[in-house]
Design a binder for these strands. Structure first.
Lengths: 162, 162
DNA sequence: CTGCGAGCGCAAAATTATTGCATGCCCGGG
DNA sequence: CCCGGGCATGCAATAATTTTGCGCTCGCAG
């Protein structure tokens, strides 16, 4: 359960931006970057974790170094959106390692799913297992990624300055 | 420049999976997890970095904790794909913090772009600045994210077992 | 059979992350 | 205007973790 005071100052914003860009630095380095002592940085970071803002730290691999890796963007339209179906559908996607991201969206499509598989055959198999086998999925459009121009999950913590 | 021997064994795969799930663990913990001493784990991880497989470690924030954060998936179709335009277009996207991901895709659309902005106005402004202002962008479809069901950048390092 | 080369565990050494503590600052209430 | 109390910080001591050196074992090729 989130819900915390959440009052970030300029240093917090800079710290979060740095951590999202590269979380593999020492507290001392981060401290110098934002003008704070190592212990102060640690206490802030611990605060983010405790408050749930900072979810976790993860390693990011270079997709081009993984042999045969194929990325695909799937646009999915379902028949009817029942709560039960939605839960089952999302749970399956969450449990599937090859499913990188899932977004419930508004508009003509209902879901945008990003897959990361090994070779086209695996993409096809996933598409069948996850979508075509689902009675409730009406339409599926798969866009193959030719080039992952930019990747990451960083989000700006404050509005644009301009 | 990548290009390395790249011969991963079972332990490497498990280690990479663990690091992609949570990179904030000690070498000792990781070692116990895969059955290796801390120093052996370190040497492997250093190897991934040196080979370029492991790009970096990043902090992941809980998007629901960032006030007013709006995610959107943009499907972009361009007029003509010239190398110059492509470079300029991609560079601009790479330099824009609110642009989380960019995929060059095959099919009816040319690019899939994921935006993370503060409030709808910012999304609109970004859409104008990044796409509508570009003479070469012919069509833009924006899908607003109602719920980020699953997020992350983890990729499987080996084919499905089944 | 013998000579590498790769990778490992162990233990020492170097760095870092953590914790305790006293101080300075900002506010709200005498 | 002066007086706490809460809060965040720096510093220094302490606890851990990371990093390095070294000797050993295993698999393979000469």
């Amino acid at each position: 359960m989130p819900g915390k005071p959440l009052a970030l100052d300029d240093i917090d914003h800079r710290l979060l931006a740095e951590l999202q860009a590269d979380a593999d630095r020492t507290l001392r380095d981060l401290g110098e970057l934002v003008g704070l002592s190592p212990s102060a940085v640690l206490r802030r970071v611990e605060g983010y974790k405790a408050g749930g803002l900072l979810e976790r730290k993860v390693a990011v691999l270079d997709t081009s170094q993984v042999p045969d890796l194929v990325l695909a963007v799937c646009l999915v339209t379902v028949e009817r959106q029942t709560p039960e179906h939605r839960r089952a559908f999302c749970d399956l996607l969450k449990r599937t390692p090859q499913v990188q991201q899932v977004y419930d969206v508004s508009g003509v499509w209902d879901y945008v799913v990003i897959l990361a598989a090994h070779g086209l055959p695996e993409v096809r198999e996933l598409a069948e297992r996850l979508f075509e086998a689902d009675e409730n999925v009406r339409k599926l459009t798969t866009l193959f990624v030719l080039d992952p121009v930019k990747t990451g999950c960083a989000v700006p913590t404050r509005p644009m300055e301009a």
